[in-house]
Simulated assay, not measured.
Amino acid sequence: MKIGILGGTFDPIHYGHIKPLLEVQAALGLDEVWLMPNHIPPHKDGTNTSTRHRLAMAQLVCHQYPQLKLCDIEANRDQPSYSVETLKHLRQTHGQDQLVFIMGMDSFVGLPTWYHWRQLFDLCHIAVCQRPGWTLCDDSEMAAQINTRRADKTGLDKAAESDCYAGLIFPVTITPQPYSSTEIRRQLAQNQLATDAMPQAIADYIAAHRLYR
């Protein structure tokens, strides 16, 4: 199988997460895309609501979009969730699958600050969500990585046929989304949430549990 994986706090999950995932899935022909909420994010001070609620909201999204699946491996870990350690575990349990780790260009640019980041290329492929206007400096290390490893859907299909399970980078241009978790939390605190920011099931869950008030 060709499996996309998006990790994050999803605090809360919204269309700024969901719509790019669906575009990446379509562009690369992924069989599934996993939502992977983390419990203790290594690059953030913490979360604004509990792991239990964030898992529940991600599961509601998966009910609405059958191609999305919930992965709770990081949510169940009582220590910082380093992506390389997670992918080592997933590679052991999904040895014959194409794992495509999905991230935004902003995260990709900052990848050298991640824990043992170079090992990611031995464990998975990476899909980089590019927004119009985002560019890399030609002489940067990450630009060199893209130039060396760049592939497209055809390359992913060929990788699957040749038992190549890691090391490719798939730049995918996505439609810009006007949503951010920070802004959504601010609106919720003021009872001013835009109704188009998230699926209704998520808005109803947040209201029922009085989250982000």
Rank of each mutant, 00 (worst) to 15 (best):
A151W: 10
Q67V: 11
S107I: 03
T195P: 10
P199G: 05
H116T: 07
L35K: 09
K19P: 00
R149Y: 05
N147C: 00
L87Y: 13
P199D: 13
T195E: 15
I206V: 15
R54I: 05
H116L: 09
Q25I: 11
T93Y: 12
G133I: 05
Q190T: 09
M198R: 11
A203S: 14
F121Y: 12
L120C: 01
L21Q: 09
A166Y: 08
D138T: 05
M142L: 08
C124V: 15
N147Q: 09
A75N: 07
T154R: 08
K44Y: 05
K44A: 06
I174M: 08
E183W: 06
H63Q: 15
P20Q: 12
E141S: 05
T113L: 09
I169S: 02
D157E: 11
Q67K: 04
V172P: 13
Q79M: 11
W134I: 06
D139V: 00
Q67H: 06
T175P: 08
D45K: 04
A189E: 12
A159D: 13
A58S: 13
K44G: 07
T9P: 12
Q130A: 01
G46T: 13
P176V: 03
L70Y: 11
Q119I: 01
G95S: 10
Y115S: 02
A194P: 09
G104W: 14
D31F: 00
Q200P: 03
A56W: 02
A127K: 01
P171A: 02
